[in-house]
């Protein structure tokens, strides 16, 4: 018996059969783990997104699951999923994902604008891989807060923000850039410009 087994292990098919069996076993284990975690991960992602959309419109909330559908309508247009913010059924503004290439990778953000695209309500960084401590500071609130209330489209002309250094005083169309992270600061300003240009005529309510 032992002899027979040894013979089989020396055959050419043995490695193939061995590999097939072990692959099947481990895929089985992983599939079980994945099944278990999938629902939880999805739920977490959804709640995170909801929190972010609510946060970007600055809607105070105690219960995200109740409040989200009350204020926010999820819309879809072609590939774009965007959000409408209504207060007492009056359309207040839009929120849509914007993205652009940063220094190390794509920066994803959510931009909230008024219904006529006249002003930026707020911006929130969803995902970025900029240098921690330098470009990574685009997630810091002093930097993001600069965009609040900035005029975006005035008289049908799309505003392109100018970057100035951190210790100057910013005028209406100026944004203080992060010292040592010009590329990351510029990336954010550029992606706002490019994506607003792309979406504003499609989404605007007053047209």
């Amino acid at each position: 018996m032992a002899n027979e087994k040894k013979l089989f292990r020396e055959t050419r098919v043995y490695p193939i059969i061995f590999m097939l069996i072990i692959t099947a076993i481990f895929i089985g284990i992983l599939a079980t783990f994945y099944q278990f975690s999938f629902a939880k991960v999805q739920k977490y992602r959804k709640t995170q997104l909801k929190k972010m959309v609510m946060g970007v419109f600055e809607i105070p909330t105690q219960n995200i699951e109740n409040d989200f559908p009350r204020y926010i309508t999820i819309r879809k247009m072609e590939d774009l999923i965007y959000y409408e913010y209504r207060q007492d059924s009056i359309l207040m503004g839009y929120c849509f994902p914007i993205s652009g290439s940063g220094l190390w990778g794509t920066i994803h953000a959510l931009l909230a604008v008024t219904r006529d695209f006249g002003k930026i309500i707020n911006i929130e960084i969803v995902d970025q891989n900029e240098t921690p401590g330098l470009g990574g500071r685009i997630t810091e609130s002093w930097f993001k807060d600069q965009f609040k209330g900035k005029i975006l489209i005035d008289d049908n002309i799309l505003n392109n923000f100018m970057l100035i250094s951190e210790n100057e005083i910013a005028k209406d169309n100026e944004i203080k850039q992060i010292t040592g992270a010009t590329a990351s600061s510029k990336a954010l300003v550029d992606m706002i410009y490019e994506d607003v240009k792309k979406y504003n005529l499609k989404l605007r309510a007053d047209l």
């Binding site: 783990f33 278990f36 975690s37 939880k40 991960v41």
Partner: peptide, 8 residues
């Protein structure tokens, strides 16, 4: 498994 555990 580690990755899934952390994600969850």
């Amino acid at each position: 498994i580690v990755d899934l555990f952390l994600k969850t």
